[in-house]
Design a protein around this nucleic acid. Sequence first.
DNA 1: TTGAAAGCGCTAACAC
DNA 2: GTGTTAGCGCTTTCAA
Lengths: 330, 330
Amino acid sequence: MPTISDVAARAGVSTATVSRALNGKATVDPELAARVRQAATELGYQPNGPARNLRRQEAAVVALIISDVENPFFTAIARGVEDIAHEVGYSVVLCNSDESAEKENRYIDIALQERVAGVILSPSGPAAGVAKLAARGTAYVAVDRPLPEHDSDVVLVDTRLAAAQATAHLIAQGYERIGCVTGPAGVRTADDRLAGYRDALRTAKRRTSTRLVRRSEYKAVGAHRAAVDLLSQPEPPDALLVANNAMAVGVLQALQELGRRPGRDVGVVAFDDAPWAELLDPPLTVVAQPAYEIGTEAARLLLARIADNTRPPTVTTLGARLIDRASSHR
Amino acid sequence: MPTISDVAARAGVSTATVSRALNGKATVDPELAARVRQAATELGYQPNGPARNLRRQEAAVVALIISDVENPFFTAIARGVEDIAHEVGYSVVLCNSDESAEKENRYIDIALQERVAGVILSPSGPAAGVAKLAARGTAYVAVDRPLPEHDSDVVLVDTRLAAAQATAHLIAQGYERIGCVTGPAGVRTADDRLAGYRDALRTAKRRTSTRLVRRSEYKAVGAHRAAVDLLSQPEPPDALLVANNAMAVGVLQALQELGRRPGRDVGVVAFDDAPWAELLDPPLTVVAQPAYEIGTEAARLLLARIADNTRPPTVTTLGARLIDRASSHR
DNA sequence: TTGAAAGCGCTAACAC
DNA sequence: GTGTTAGCGCTTTCAA
């Protein structure tokens, strides 16, 4: 593989000039620059990234550590991040932490080792790894979930409010016993959505009961079990707030198996819109989160912090939108 | 940020010993090794990746370039690749080429520059970039679509056969005028699925007609348009073979808008299974591709090729499975 | 505007 | 079993 010296030899200049020419520095004679570019093309020269990063002490790469590649909410964030990062010449590497603090930690180590310019992550629980980022002075921003122990830039959705609105919507539609299927305790979005649900019940002067609440992993299987459990009680709920998209699949499956029709028998509102939500019968009412915008905003904040790590941390809160379809109507 | 010499100083040994100890070489006194590890921990030492990669002339990283992060088929492949790569200590970086040959090319350049150990990609059309990989001797394997010009390792699905079986299934269910909504011309899977569809028609001695075939991007909007177009003809199809998951959403939307019920009015079989396929009314008949296995197999081939680039190229073809649900029954 | 040369942090060949 | 040292390919002073 040709190196910068091969290019220099072929163009009849020094390696310094090649470096300057190829990096678009203004201080190089246009004629020489052209000769260098030509030599580079002829040789099929590809700069050696590790050598460059070693010298520069930083790679033009941002790491995006998300908790589930198969969740459309996170892939939409990824697109947002990519679009902004690419505009300014940064590459994005996607890492899938799979909701495991250990994998997250491992990816943070890799990011640190590779000397990436910054990290965007959706933290899985109390993140020990993040402390290392802070200690090393690597720029980072949290998305979807805050980092309780650290004050960094954060991009959130006002998910508590959104959950309250969704619940209020179910109340307004005349449902009497509204239940909630949310994520694991300790996962901030799961707790917030539950809190919002309770807010709305309290506002409407309804009794809240732990008998109407179930938690599980943010996955279909857990939610399926939770829903079956809830609905086979003596006094089952007549409506359900479901805390994410994958869980909605599990809940709807359970309803199907138990012969309960969404809307008529059990009102359903789920977090996260999906292209297939409209195709269901009845179509699924959802709380749509601005995932792509979370990504673009996070990327902008990260770039700002890479440029200046002393700027005060910010909290950006975006709103969610209730999309009222038929599954929340009797 | 502490370097290897800091660790060496603190442990009272040379940098060579630190390197050996931290890389688990057997030739180092256990007691020294322990001292080194301790010193490293105390300092919070993180090896400098670029320096290591520069020296080793290769990074323990494989790049996975997929054509659509938002397509569950590709994210499932990604999981397969990750699981195998991590077993042997390789990291995986995911790149989203977005079906654009230009972005694909760009990511191949980055992979080359970063000196990754290997590349797995689902090629978007005739890939100029791949020639560079071959020229540089970087290991690579293609998934989902072959590389016509290059003989490399490839992991494919026998998608033509699967399409033929799906079409035969529709014929067996008594549908008379079966149409096909497939991807862009030149995209191998799109062409193969169309060819399989025609195979089945021919086998059944049915006339094939271009009036029953539409092509679009592998996206919902294009498929929606295609379906509306097909179904508003004087002699519309009474069944449809749809070439991927996102397209199925578009087609089903169109059916809904036109007041045609899947199955009873228009039989539907779509490629790629999805968790929501069972939730539809009627549930969607699909051709399930072994995406996760494609990923694991591709990763294994890549690792073998990294170890020995002279091994003869292989073609691995996996089978798909028709999951018969109600959308393909009257 | 250009070139010579130092040095980023690590690994491995070589010497002991 | 351990240390010394060269050098991976690049960028960036510094000097001319």
